[in-house]
């Protein structure tokens, strides 16, 4: 195999990679929905982020969103980068015998193949410490989600304040309560 052939094969591989989209989707600032289906036969997660929103209070906050994986391989949300807070980490609220416990989840959250990861009030969430005081209600903050397999996805989360509430909480809480009561 001469050098010319080797170079040609490498170029062919690069072209194939580009055409089949196995380089991932890259960051997309307008990422309320971000997905590109790879035509590659290799198993891969295909992620889409929806409803990103940030609940901010003085000194602390939380980001909620849904990541849907229409691919055939699971992925993990492993890290969050943002300039809008001094810390952004994966955390979870767990209720044990009426006690609300906050658990750090440094291992991140799985996004199952063909399923979704929901970050919602009272459960899994991205915790922010010292969010920017300029992040007013109705504005947005930028975050980049990092995954074990997929390329990072940049999102723009709409800022809400506690008093404006979160309709997802009402729905989830109602569902949980009905479930609990069925067993009373």
């Amino acid at each position: 195999m001469n050098l010319f052939t080797t170079t040609g094969m490498a170029a062919g591989l690069v072209l194939w990679a580009i055409l089949t989209g196995c380089g991932g989707r890259g960051a997309d600032v307008d990422a309320a929905s971000t997905s590109t289906a790879p035509a590659s036969p290799v198993l891969a997660p295909i992620l889409e982020v929806t409803e990103p929103r940030a609940q901010l209070m003085p000194g602390v906050g939380a980001v909620y969103l849904t990541v849907t994986n229409s691919g055939d391989e699971a992925d993990h949300l492993v890290a969050i980068k943002t300039a809008a807070a001094s810390v952004a980490e994966t955390h979870e609220t767990v209720v044990e015998e009426g006690v609300m416990r906050m658990m750090a989840r440094p291992e991140g959250f799985e996004i199952p193949a063909g399923g979704s990861l929901e970050l919602a009030p009272g459960g899994k969430h991205i915790m922010l410490i010292e969010p920017q005081p300029t992040s007013d209600e109705g504005g947005t903050i930028l975050l980049t989600l990092h995954f074990a397999t997929s390329e990072p996805i940049a999102i723009e989360a709409i800022v809400t304040t506690p008093a404006s509430g979160d309709h997802a909480m009402d729905h989830d809480a109602a569902h949980d309560m009905e479930h609990d009561m069925e067993h009373d």
Partner: peptide
């Protein structure tokens, strides 16, 4: 507590409702 990032704000919002 006020530095509670996840549940407490919704608790107060719920009682406001």
């Amino acid at each position: 507590y006020t530095m509670c990032p996840d549940v407490c704000p919704f608790t107060l919002a719920k009682i406001k409702h």
